[in-house]
Each structure stands twice: as structure tokens, then as C-alpha cells.
């Protein structure tokens, strides 16, 4: 017992070290590009938490990333790399936009339309995810390649819609489709943009996944498949059916992310509607070693970095991708430190 606890502290120590090294490298990069590092970090923090508006922006971005990452834990549990998550978010956004457009001028109440559009978005994401599953199960296509291919198709589809059938009257541009009227926005706290509904969905999503993976038979079976598919088969678990199910659940969550991007964040369809949350979610999932309990704090940290860095070009004439650099370094060094730790502790 004592030994277990010391090893936990050692673990934490290594992770802390990883964060320090990541910060050091980012600082080095800042110094090399001639920017004052302290100032830059200050701007980063102020950009995220400096005002009510900024905090609200962080929270707006948090819900979608939280939901996507939660969904990804399900596919990771089954040992699957759902690289197609970006496409699934995109399809969610497309389906949501489609429903909003179709019922915009109908007699249905706005609440009804919004609910309908979100459900449609979830369905869209699930559909796209099950395609990855079908390709894997019946076509023998590895989910990484299938997902990558479907990502390309999804982003092409968005461009086609924006420039084609759904273009703005008169102009077709990268700025997306016509903005939806206010009543079709997810209700938010007055002029802050943050919606309690989106927030609630995010929290609910991660809670569901946490309990799903921890306390249900389906969750346990998925874990068994992820850890050893052959033994799972011998134990009588229908493996491909469960893998399909995990894709569909992840797709539902991805679709919900897309739906929130449309109904709560951008209020239209954009070419880059995913904001890269799919890939970011994959990164976060790896960073936290697929532990559901860490999803909420780490995704919050990541969106804070994202939102905070928006200030950088204005204040310091720095590229706002600095946060991306820091995020990447963090994942790399945490994984690296994990490797180093294993190597060192094995000797002891």
C-alpha cells in the first residue's frame, strides 16, 4: 500500500516535470522569436480570465471540446483510433444546419426547432461514425484510414454546401452560410453568449461517459475488447458488434459537438466548423491516459490556452498559434516523461 502511494507521487512528479519542460521549451521559442516571455504568458492568462467576457468565451469553447473528448474515450476504451472524429463533428454541424434551415420559416416553435436540430446533429455524427465502423468490419479498412478518408469527404461536403446550395444570397464566401436569426440560437445568458444549456450538456456528457465506462457491463466489455480482442471473443463477447457500438456512441457525442458549434458558437455553417476540436480531443485523451476523471479540467485548460492566445497578435504582434505550440509540447513531454519514468522505475 505504501509502495503504491509513493509510486503515485513519483508519477505526479514526472508529470509536473513534463509541464515544466514544455513551458521551458515554449519560453525558449518565445525568446528566439524576440518576444518577452513573461509578458506573453501574462497576456495569455489575461486573455483567458482577464474579464467576464473572456471567461465566458472560454466556457463557450469548453462544452464542445469536453463532449468530443468524452466521446473519444469510448472508442479508445475499445482500442479504436477514431481519427474520423473531425468528419463526425462536421456531419453533426451539417445535419443541424440542415434542420435549422428547413424549419426556419415553419410554424414550429423555436425551442422545438433547436431541439430537433441538435438531435439531427447527433444522428449525423453517429451516421458518419458508423460508416467508419462498417468500413472496418465489413471492408477490412483500418479505422484510421477510413476515418481520415471520411474526414476529407466531410470537409469537401461543407465547402460544397457553402459555395453551392446553401450559399448566402448574392455572395458565396468562406465566411459561411447566412447567420441564423437570434431565436434559433441556443438560449444564452444575456449578451455574454454563454449558454447554460451547452454547459449542462457538456457536464452531463462527461458524467455519462464516466459512469458508462466505470460501472456498466457494456463499458467493461468494450474495455476487454480494447485490451485483448481475442480473449474477449473467447469470453463470448460479440466483438465487432460492440466495436460498432463504440463508434456509434462516439459519433453521437461528436455530432452533439457539431450541433453546439452551430447553435451556440457560430450560428451558421463554416468551412472549419470543427475548430479542430476533434484532433484536440484526441490529443487531450492521450495526455490524460484515457482517464475520464481528468477530461473536464484538462479540456478547460486547453480551451483557456486557445482563447487566451487570441490576444497575443494584438498585444505583442505574436502569432496566436503559440497556444498550439504549448499544447503540442505538453502532450509530447507528458508522453515522453511517461516513457522516461517507466524506464527509470523498472531499474529500481
Amino acid at each position: 500500500m505504501l509502495q503504491k502511494q509513493t509510486s503515485r507521487w513519483v508519477n505526479l512528479g514526472f508529470q509536473f516535470l513534463a509541464i515544466l519542460v514544455a513551458l521551458a521549451f515554449t519560453t525558449l521559442l518565445l525568446v528566439l522569436s524576440g518576444a518577452p516571455p513573461i509578458q506573453a504568458y501574462k497576456e495569455l492568462i489575461l486573455g483567458a480570465f482577464g474579464s467576464i467576457d473572456n471567461v465566458s468565451n472560454v466556457l463557450i469553447a469548453w462544452a464542445p471540446l469536453l463532449i468530443t473528448t468524452a466521446g473519444l474515450l469510448v472508442t479508445f476504451a475499445a482500442g479504436l483510433w477514431n481519427i474520423g472524429i473531425e468528419g463526425q463533428i462536421t456531419l453533426g454541424a451539417i445535419f443541424t444546419t440542415w434542420v435549422l434551415r428547413s424549419f426556419e420559416n415553419s410554424s414550429l416553435s423555436p425551442t422545438m426547432i433547436i431541439i430537433l436540430s441538435i438531435v439531427a446533429g447527433m444522428f449525423g455524427g453517429m451516421l458518419w461514425a458508423s460508416l467508419v465502423g462498417v468500413l472496418k468490419t465489413f471492408g477490412g479498412v483500418n479505422e484510421i484510414f477510413g476515418g481520415l478518408g471520411l474526414n476529407f469527404i466531410a470537409s469537401t461536403l461543407v465547402l460544397y454546401l457553402i459555395y453551392g446550395p446553401w450559399r448566402r444570397p448574392g455572395v458565396a464566401s468562406l465566411s459561411g452560410t447566412e447567420i441564423f436569426p437570434n431565436r434559433l440560437w441556443l438560449p444564452s445568458i444575456s449578451n455574454l453568449g454563454i449558454s447554460p444549456w451547452a454547459f449542462a450538456l457538456g457536464i452531463l456528457g462527461i458524467l455519462i461517459i464516466y459512469f458508462f465506462l466505470r460501472g456498466t457491463y457494456i463499458g467493461l466489455k468494450l474495455k476487454a475488447i480494447g485490451k485483448n480482442i481475442r480473449s474477449a471473443h473467447t469470453l463470448g463477447i460479440p466483438t465487432w458488434q460492440y466495436m460498432m457500438l463504440s463508434f456509434m456512441i462516439c459519433g453521437l457525442f461528436a455530432g452533439l459537438t457539431g450541433a453546439l458549434q452551430v447553435t451556440n458558437v457560430y450560428h451558421r455553417l463554416l468551412p472549419y466548423i470543427t475548430s479542430g476540436y476533434g484532433f484536440l480531443g484526441l490529443l487531450v485523451a492521450m495526455l490524460i491516459n484515457y482517464q475520464a476523471i481528468w477530461v473536464a479540467p484538462i479540456t478547460l485548460f486547453y480551451v483557456a490556452l486557445n482563447v487566451g492566445s487570441v490576444q497575443l497578435p494584438i498585444a505583442l504582434k505574436l502569432d496566436s498559434n503559440l497556444s498550439g505550440v504549448l499544447q503540442g509540447f505538453l502532450v509530447l513531454f507528458v508522453l515522453l516523461m511517461e516513457g522516461v519514468r517507466q524506464k527509470l522505475t523498472r531499474k529500481v
Binding site: Y217, K221, K223, K227, N228, R230, S231
Partner: peptide
Amino acid sequence: RLEEGLVPGLTLSEHFCLADGNTGFFI
């Protein structure tokens, strides 16, 4: 045994849980 019969990374109780063939939702 470890390649085709048991699932490394899962505990004994998790194995019995899987093999028990329960049909409920929550464990």
C-alpha cells in the same frame, strides 16, 4: 492463456463480471 483466454490489464473480478453473462446494464 494471456493471448486468447484472459484479458491482460483487467482484474480477476472484472473477468468474472464478463464471464458471468449478466444481462443488466449497471454492474
